[in-house]
Simulated scan of single mutants.
Amino acid sequence: MLTPQRATPADYPELIAIWARSVAATHQFLQPADREAIQRALPQYFAQVTLVKWQLGTTTVGFSGTAATDLVMLFLDPAYFRRGYGQTIVQTLIAEDNLQTVTVNAQNPGALAFYRRQGFHLVSRFETDTDGRPYPILNLKR
């Protein structure tokens, strides 16, 4: 059974490693310098959200970051892709935290399709990410 646990700064190295593996598998559009800059900034991003690591026993399969009813980040270790864990996490966040919105990279069509299957639809698009990098962002709502 997948269980949530509030993450702490002591968990950051593990979560950053999961992020790096997940991004390598899904975010080929990122330029290497941008990927490195984002990775260095993750501790600051983590501190701005409610950060939860999702565990299967003692193994962390991924993590989520929310701000109020917005899913800001969801990353799974690629070893756990396509096993229903992402859906379980999103459905849990909907049921327990009233998740209403999600932000996704436009250049990640797999993530967009995933969120659409979870009942989200496009409400807006921005041509750059929040740091001004040239990666279009889609805002979705349930």
Rank of each mutant, 00 (worst) to 15 (best):
L2I: 14
L2E: 07
T3L: 08
T3E: 06
P4G: 00
P4V: 01
Q5K: 10
Q5F: 03
Q5Y: 00
R6V: 13
R6L: 12
R6M: 07
A7L: 05
T8W: 01
T8Y: 07
P9Q: 01
P9G: 01
D11C: 04
P13M: 00
P13Y: 04
E14F: 06
E14A: 15
L15G: 03
I16C: 03
I16K: 09
A17G: 05
A17Y: 08
I18S: 06
I18D: 04
W19Y: 13
A20Y: 00
R21P: 12
S22V: 10
A24W: 00
A25D: 06
H27E: 06
F29R: 07
F29V: 01
F29D: 07
P32R: 00
A33L: 03
D34W: 03
D34F: 02
R35F: 07
I38S: 02
I38F: 06
L42K: 09
L42E: 07
P43D: 13
Q44D: 15
Y45I: 04
F46Q: 03
F46G: 01
A47D: 13
A47T: 09
Q48P: 03
V49N: 09
V49E: 08
V49L: 13
T50V: 14
L51N: 02
L51V: 08
L51Q: 02
K53W: 02
Q55A: 08
L56N: 04
L56A: 07
G57T: 13
G57H: 11
T59C: 11
T59I: 10
T60H: 03
T60Q: 04
T60Y: 03
V61Q: 02
F63Y: 15
F63I: 04
T66G: 06
A67K: 13
A68C: 08
A68S: 14
T69Q: 05
T69H: 12
F75M: 14
L76V: 12
L76N: 09
D77S: 12
D77L: 06
P78M: 00
A79P: 08
A79Y: 07
F81K: 12
F81L: 11
F81D: 07
R83T: 07
Y85N: 05
G86C: 12
T88F: 03
I89P: 09
I89L: 09
V90W: 01
Q91S: 14
L93I: 12
L93P: 09
L93F: 04
A95R: 14
E96M: 07
D97N: 15
N98T: 11
L99P: 02
L99R: 03
L99C: 09
L99Q: 09
V102T: 14
V102K: 03
T103W: 10
T103I: 07
N105I: 00
A106R: 15
A106D: 12
A106G: 05
A106Q: 15
G110K: 12
L112M: 06
A113M: 07
F114I: 15
R116C: 05
R117L: 11
R117H: 14
Q118G: 08
Q118S: 11
Q118W: 08
G119V: 05
G119I: 02
F120T: 03
F120K: 05
H121Q: 14
H121C: 08
L122M: 11
L122A: 09
S124M: 09
S124W: 10
R125D: 01
R125W: 04
T128D: 02
T130A: 13
T130N: 15
T130G: 15
D131I: 00
R133W: 12
P134G: 10
P134L: 11
I137C: 10
I137S: 08
L138C: 10
L140A: 10
K141P: 01
R142C: 08
